[in-house]
Design a protein around this nucleic acid. Structure first.
Length: 689
DNA sequence: GAGGGGATTCTTTTT
DNA sequence: GAATCCCCTC
């Protein structure tokens, strides 16, 4: 936070005593939950716990061929913990999914059984829906359902081929059915989809029972596929949630499996427990019940930082009863005012206080108004934002990040392209543009990224030579050749994306063999070596979908859209690159509230409105009920409160919140009680004077 | 005025 | 792919 912070002997001792409670749980093999607010140093405590177990029980672990298991919510967190813990063979750190799949993947017979059971349940669910939903009314009134079903299944090919045509053409194509079934096309499609799903599920069950291999699918095996986000039960593949379902099923039903896991891992520590799936907690509770004192489970987290719906949140101790609760009220991150406001917002029994005896006051203000630019500029001056004293701004939507960071035009281009808009890929839009794990970017985005990466490495004087020239190439070069190589590479330029792309390939095709080798380490797609091919590449990937018939008018409008995209200023793509690499332009960075989990920033601005996505008055309602006790919150209020708490507690020194909607009809007294006087953002200029 | 078709719009995040 | 809005038809 700041320099010269001092912790008194008294507080040092109290902190030690809190950790001593954890040590005691470890020594007695009592399961526990360490619940501590934001900035309390939970990850540090988790590492400390692992070190304690290692220091005291390593020889026992080695003697019994056992390991400590540490489970995290994300791969990034797993990597971080491995790094901080250092090298040890006795601790295995992984995500929950890696852990579970590792334990159950060998039990194929039981897994296939669970798979079959699940498909059966799904069939029942669908048939239930077909009986009850309003869209299937016509179907339920049919005299001869069997005949109807048979026809749909028989002509499934024709159905799928014409499904995306307009209503009239669709009706014409489905001429094997009586017109009266097709009076409402949308309803018909829903019914037909579900009938076909059931039909395919039944086929799959038959195949499983006869243990065949068919169409490249082996029906005696089933596998977790972490790459897909939806189950493909018919292809004997399943995704994340179903992995947890099957794990629960197997572990609950097979004592032998419980024994195997417990024998291997006498210690299981779980990070960010609040976002862990309840089924995972059920699994842990079952293992604990089986092992009794031979297994220690420790949960680390904060129930009020549960920001994902599937997380167990505050029902941990209901699902895993009789565990020791250890709490920590000290805060190591933030200034006094921020801790105070955070405590008022979470509004439960945890009252956090600073651990430092010379903790700065810090500042918190609440503004009403809608001039976001003015609000940001005001605080840039007020807080003396510099390279050493940066500003971090929290917004709700990724789209806002794109626009505020300067690459809104690029974001909008992808958002409006048929691939994301008309196709079923809307869900991937964010990942394909904004994932900081750049290998997960979309195909076109990834292509452009590699081009811009080369550009930025060439532009940046701090780039190490090996970041530009692969070691294998470097070793073949003399100093003179290297100098010539860099000189040549610097010649790649262009004001627009199109120009830069052309310049790149001009260099790749014309120049010497070293230049070619270097450029190919960035981009190997020679088939896109001129503007026309680049255009075609974009068209083929983003503008052509099977679901759409393109007429001349549409084609020419698409053509125009793509070419104005290619003509976008190259600096727009630099801004995108900066975001992906956390490079602060003008000392400001933008994040979503969700995306900042675990982070801390000196100066924080929060932009908030009354709505969030489809949820009308999501935050408006929270503002209204901010000071009522949080244990009375309904589901939506709870998630709004937790999200706001996470955002607010990122700040170390200074925090300002801008509420961009009207506060009319909201009792302002309770806002004042928490944040002090409400300031008007439109007047910030005058206040500054 | 009821109901259907078609166009438009849709948050965040992880595995 | 689901919800919502607008416009058209019966």
């Amino acid at each position: 936070m700041m320099d010269n912070l001092h912790v008194s002997e008294e507080n040092k001792n109290k902190e030690k005593q809190i950790f001593a409670q954890i040590e005691q749980c470890i020594d007695n093999n009592d399961c526990f939950v360490f619940d501590a607010g934001a900035g309390a140093g939970k990850t540090y405590c988790l590492i400390q716990s692992l070190s304690y177990i290692l220091s005291k029980y390593s020889s026992q672990l080695v003697a019994h061929n056992q390991m400590i298991r540490c489970i995290t919510y994300t791969n990034v967190a797993a990597t971080e913990i491995k790094k901080r813990l250092g090298n040890t063979e006795l601790v295995k750190v992984s995500t929950i999914h890696d852990f579970l799949w590792g334990e159950i993947c060998l039990y194929q017979k039981e897994l296939v059984e669970a798979h079959k059971k699940y498909i059966d349940e799904e069939i029942n669910n669908i048939e239930d829906k077909l009986k009850k939903e309003t869209w299937s009314k016509f179907y339920n009134e049919l005299e001869d359902k069997k005949n109807f079903i048979e026809k749909i299944c028989k002509y499934a090919d024709i159905y799928y081929k014409n499904k995306h045509k307009n209503a009239q053409e669709f009706k014409n194509a489905m001429d094997f059915l009586d017109k009266k079934y097709l009076s409402n096309v949308a309803n018909f499609k829903k019914v037909a989809d579900n009938i076909l799903k059931v039909y395919k599920f039944r086929e799959t069950i038959k195949n499983i029972d006869s243990k065949v291999k068919k169409d490249n699918i082996n029906y005696t095996k089933v596998a977790y596929n972490s790459q897909i986000s939806y189950d493909r039960l018919n292809a004997m593949q399943f995704s994340h949630d179903t992995l947890i379902r099957y794990s629960l099923d197997l572990i609950l039903n097979y004592k032998a499996l419980q024994k195997i896991i417990v024998d291997k891992y006498p210690y299981i520590l779980i990070d960010e427990y609040q976002d862990t799936n309840p089924s995972v907690v059920k699994i842990m509770a079952k293992l604990s019940e089986f092992a009794q004192k031979d297994l220690l489970i420790g949960y680390y987290g904060d129930k009020k930082q549960n920001i994902y719906d599937e997380g167990v949140g505050d029902s941990l101790t209901t699902l895993h009863p009789n565990i020791k609760e250890i709490k920590k009220e000290y805060n190591r991150r933030s200034a006094k005012k921020i801790i105070e406001v955070g405590t008022l917002i979470r509004n439960d029994e945890l009252k956090q206080k600073t651990i430092y005896d010379n903790c700065p006051e810090g500042s918190v203000s609440f503004y009403e108004g809608n001039d976001i630019d003015e609000f940001i500029n005001h605080h840039r001056t007020k807080w003396k934002i510099t390279q050493e004293n940066k500003l971090d701004c929290l917004v709700l939507k990724n789209e806002d990040i794109a626009h505020r960071m300067g690459f809104g035009d690029m974001y909008d281009f992808f958002k409006n392209s048929p691939y994301y808009k008309i196709g079923k890929n809307y869900n991937y839009l964010r990942d394909h543009i904004l994932n900081k794990e750049v290998e997960k970017l979309g195909e076109i985005q990834s292509y452009i990224y590699r081009l811009i990466e080369l550009r930025n490495r060439l532009k940046n004087p701090n780039t190490l030579i090996q970041e530009l020239v692969d070691r294998n190439i470097l070793k073949d070069l003399s100093i003179g050749e290297l100098r010539k190589l860099i000189y040549d590479l610097q010649k790649i330029d262009g004001h627009t994306l199109k120009e830069y792309n052309s310049s790149f390939f001009k260099m790749l095709l014309d120049e010497n063999v070293h230049v070619q080798r270097v450029l190919k380490t960035f981009l190997n797609e020679e088939r896109i070596n001129n503007s026309e091919l680049f255009y075609n590449y974009i068209f083929e990937k983003l503008f052509y979908t099977e679901d759409e018939d393109i007429d001349d008018q549409k084609l020419s409008s698409y053509k125009e859209t793509i070419s104005s995209f290619c003509d976008l200023d190259i600096s727009i793509f630099d801004d995108w690159y900066n975001y992906l690499h956390d490079i602060y332009k003008s000392n400001i960075m933008y994040h979503t509230y969700h995306g900042t989990k675990g982070d801390e920033f000196k100066n924080v601005l929060i932009i908030m409105g009354k709505d969030f996505g489809k949820m009308n008055n999501f935050f408006g309602n929270l503002i209204k009920h901010l000071s009522s006790p949080s244990n009375e919150d309904g589901k939506e209020l709870k998630s709004a409160r937790n999200l706001f708490y996470v955002a607010v507690t990122r700040a170390e020194n200074n925090l300002a919140i801008l509420y961009t909607d009207s506060l009319d009809g909201i009792q302002k007294e309770q806002i004042k009680n928490i944040f002090g006087e409400i300031k008007e953002a439109k007047n910030v200029g005058e206040q500054n004077a």
